[in-house]
Every structure is written in C-alpha cells, then in structure tokens.
Amino acid sequence: MADLTLTIDGGTVTVPEGSTILDAVRSVGGDLPTLCHGPTLEPANVCRVCMVEVEGAGALVPSCSRVVDEGMVVHTDTDRARHSRTVVMELLASSADLERVDDRFSAWMEDHGADPARFTGATIEGRPAKVHDDLYVRDYARCILCYRCVDACGEQHQNTFAITVAGRGFDAHISTEFDVALPDSACVYCGNCIAVCPTGALEGKIAWDMKEAGTWDIDRQEVTRTVCSYCGVGCNLDIHTQEGAIVDVTSPEDHDVTLGNLCIKGRFGWSFVVSVDE
C-alpha cells in the first residue's frame, strides 16, 4: 500500500495509506487521549476525547477514525482542540464514575487541567451495580456509553446481540431487551464485553469483588500466557495470578485467533484447576 505524507504539529509524518490520524500521531511517538477507541473494533466515534484540528475542516475531527489524506495538516495541540478535549473530559467525569479508568486517562485529564467539578448536575454515579451471577458484574455507574461492549457483543465479534444502546440522549443506556435480567437475555456469558470495557463498568466477578474490597493489586499480579484447555481452536489465554491464585483470565487482543475474545468456558471455566477434589 502506498505511503502518505502529512504534517502533524509542524512535523512531517509518513504513514501507510489507510492509517488514521491517531495512528500517524502514535507512529512518531506522540499520543492522544482515547476511550471509545478499541484496537480490535471499528471506531465508534462517540467519546470525542481525541479531537484534533485539521486545516480546511470546519469542525474538529476525531483522530481515532479520520483517515489520513495526502498533504493533510493536523494540529493536535491548539487551544481550540485542547479546549474541546478538556470540556469533553469534564463532561464525562461529571456524569459517570471514572475512578477505574486506566491511569493513562487520569494523566490526560491532569495534563489538560480538566476540572469536572465545574459541571454539576445529572449523573449516573451511584447507580447500584447489577450482580446477577458468579461470572460478571455490570457496574453501570461507570458506563460512559462508548459502544465498545455493544459492538463486541454484536456484529464485530460475538454476534450474540445480548445488549444494545436503548433510549436516547442522556437517558441512553446499555440494556438487554426490555432490560430483563441477564440470564433471561440472549447473553452467552462469553465476557467479550468485559474484555473491551475501558472503565470497569463491566468486570469479572472476582476482579470486581477484589476491587470493591481493595485487594486487587495489579503490581502484585503475574500474567502467564497459555492455551485454553477446552476445544481445539487454540485460543490463547492470559492467566492473571495474584499471590499464586488465579484472579482473572483474558485473551490477548493481538492474538489473531481470538482478538481478545473467548467463550464462556475459556474465560470462566477454569475453576476446575482450583477445585477441591483434585
């Protein structure tokens, strides 16, 4: 594929055709905040924390999805772009619980001087978590409606379509049909929604319990890559252990067999290894 050359913040950058502005920024060691952008998913274009200025475009453009054109002139750090990103971060943090979003995002908020306290009002914080089974928890007070879980459950990965965005505007929310409990829905408990959730709104039960209890400690965890013990597809698994006990099982998103996805057995069916009658 041909290479394209563009200008980012005054510097010349060459990237393969089809790259996004974000790809181009990262290719030269830069970065921008992202939330709804999932590496294994099509850009949802909704969180708007990655906006940049492109000369000739009326509005700001989302860097995670806008594909680079030859000769494009991009400014990532103008007052206008920073202002917009800052306000959007403030709006997000004022409306949902972002405590469990990864550290990089809090660093971005600090970097931009975001002050969510400026915006008080309607929030989904404080909504009770939905704990319906032993496998995973839906803690929707943390949901920023990034669409990643819906896309992963839907056509892009799992094709189960157990969840959707329902309602509209600020009332829009992730829901099963008629908001029935998960066991009554189409959910197959693959947990592929958990794998893509950037905010901790969807979490394995063990991890969520540990986080609630304050015992989840990523610094004391080890990750061992292996292959699932069930069928013969060969899904890679990352076994997360803390003090010799398995606390989570995931699949690497750069593994071309799974793209980070698993089935219920792979993600949750490992408890036999710690079963008592061994």
Binding site: T224, T226, V227, G244, I246, V257, E278
Partner: peptide
C-alpha cells in the same frame, strides 16, 4: 492439569503453541 504444566498444544489449524504453568499443582 491445565495452568500447572509446561508444554505445547496443537490447534485445529495445525498451529503449535506454548502452554505454560501459571500456578503450582495442588497436593
């Protein structure tokens, strides 16, 4: 069992992959 031993497994696309030990076997 699984997660307690080292070795390889081969998948349905003839792909040989490493399986690894994450925890000690019991007893």
């Amino acid at each position: 069992g699984w997660g307690e031993t080292e070795g390889t497994v081969t998948s349905s696309e003839r792909r040989v992959q490493r399986s690894r030990k994450a925890i000690d076997p019991p007893g």
